[in-house]
Design a protein around this nucleic acid. Sequence first.
DNA 1: TTGAAAGCGCTAACAG
DNA 2: CTGTTAGCGCTTTCAA
Lengths: 324, 324
Amino acid sequence: MTTIKDVAKLAGVSVATVSRAINQSGYVGVDSAQKIEKAIKKLDFHPSEVARSLYQKKSKLVGLLLPDISNPFFPLLAKGVEDKMNEAGYHLILGNVQEDMAKEQDYLKAFMQNNVAGILSAVDGGTSNLKEIPFVLLDRVATKKEYAVHGNDFEGGILAAKTIAEGSPKEIVLLVGPKSIKGSVERLKGSVSVFKEENLTYQLLQTDSFQFDSAKKASLELFEQFPKVDSVIASNDVHGLAILKEALRRGIKVPEELQIIGYDDIPFSQMVYPSLATIAQPAYEMGYKGAELLCRIMENQPIDKKIIQLPVLLKQRETLRKKE
Amino acid sequence: MTTIKDVAKLAGVSVATVSRAINQSGYVGVDSAQKIEKAIKKLDFHPSEVARSLYQKKSKLVGLLLPDISNPFFPLLAKGVEDKMNEAGYHLILGNVQEDMAKEQDYLKAFMQNNVAGILSAVDGGTSNLKEIPFVLLDRVATKKEYAVHGNDFEGGILAAKTIAEGSPKEIVLLVGPKSIKGSVERLKGSVSVFKEENLTYQLLQTDSFQFDSAKKASLELFEQFPKVDSVIASNDVHGLAILKEALRRGIKVPEELQIIGYDDIPFSQMVYPSLATIAQPAYEMGYKGAELLCRIMENQPIDKKIIQLPVLLKQRETLRKKE
DNA sequence: TTGAAAGCGCTAACAG
DNA sequence: CTGTTAGCGCTTTCAA
């Protein structure tokens, strides 16, 4: 490993000067600068981030906590985060927290031990003692965190319900995600408000999580418990797709006999036939905006909105009955 | 931030003793140990990984390079890597390299600057000057790397072709992934060997990448260029699903008029109807095994197999015509 | 069994 | 404009 010392020696200057040159801080003579640049090239020198962050008590790393990387919504989110962070010169420590509180704590600890400059989290667990590390919550807004970027879940719930209402539903089933997640509750509220207004009845089916196994399970339960269901609002696209598949398997015609709407708009929702209607959340943008917000916090820039709510969007697709 | 010094002071010993106690290296008196433990608890002390890795010239971080995190194959791989690495006390710096050489180099540099203990990569680019950092290649085996874990692509190609051959194919189209990726070539070879043997004709359709946009494009091209196609071997499941969707959209009966087989076995392949037959690669296991191998290298343990080839497995599903 | 002290590679006063 | 120097928090000889 070549160090700043080697560069200094080769360039015939002191390490301080090299440091100044690298960081463009303080004065550096023109010829010194040239000699240093040459030496750096020659030695293929890259300053140690570790040493730098030891002194600065702040690294160029930020932590990213995800609930479930195998749900395609989150890779998109992660990509948004990654792109913005890379632009700003940061790199990510990834923490995939399978809804496991212990793992979350473990990661948070690791983040601190590595002097991360900030944390982005799409996990709603007990964010406990994060002292003063800049922290931005993504997607799932917990109790009362200061900074967050999330979709307008209430509005999403309304949109989904209104859309379903237009397909002359006789028996609606509403899948509800984990109650511990605030977004689930908001969506439910939104949908229910519509049903109340339109005097529609509905049934609830609680799901354990947003994950695959839960989706499969829910799709079986659905038809068992509600054999006459003709309209489903799924808690996310993974669930929506599972239900779509199960319906087709049973020979139920979609959307004639069963209409389905999902949530998220993951890429696969367009890759099935009939394509899954859904409420789109801008996952990539959410990540990107969250990262932007984090950058502002880290750089002590003025912040106009501490909580950014992104609009959701109805994607009319083939699992929807036409308006009468 | 509380430091080892604070602990030492509170425990009434020297920092050296605290260090020994933490790392269980060297002698520590019983009562010293107790006092230290108490002090650590009381101060909620977590040793700085940054300082440790500065001295050791090795951090508890490992780099993970992925070609495309939005392809569900890779999150699974990543999860395998993450699980094993966490068990071994490591954390991941994630690098999502959208088939972009510059980004890859950038990440590699960042990995070095952070003193990563090792690198796992599913990207086949120019791994250039990695000095002596332990390095394991995943999935896509490049030229002649020393350590790697990958699926048996040749065998996979054979399996796919044999399976298709059993469905009395009249017109076979074989989608070929990027030629720069060795796996694509191997699979092609495997499939072709079967067709030769069985005296079957086939057409090739080259695809640009393994990603979504490419899949959509390929699905359109396929039916345009080969309107009479009745059997498809897709370059991966994303492509397989895209073709399945397009076929259904066109009213083509699957599998009666068109049989399809994919590659990878991503979770969504089971979540469509008809479910997509595929050659399963054990993504999670591949990640896990790769991480295991890396750990062995990092700890200088003896290594029995430098290149681990994982078996692939045929998943008979509903997009396949029955044997006559 | 323990502590003093010398770094790991870099940055930031502070003199010159 | 530049160099000297004192750390950042931790580990590890080397004496005691």
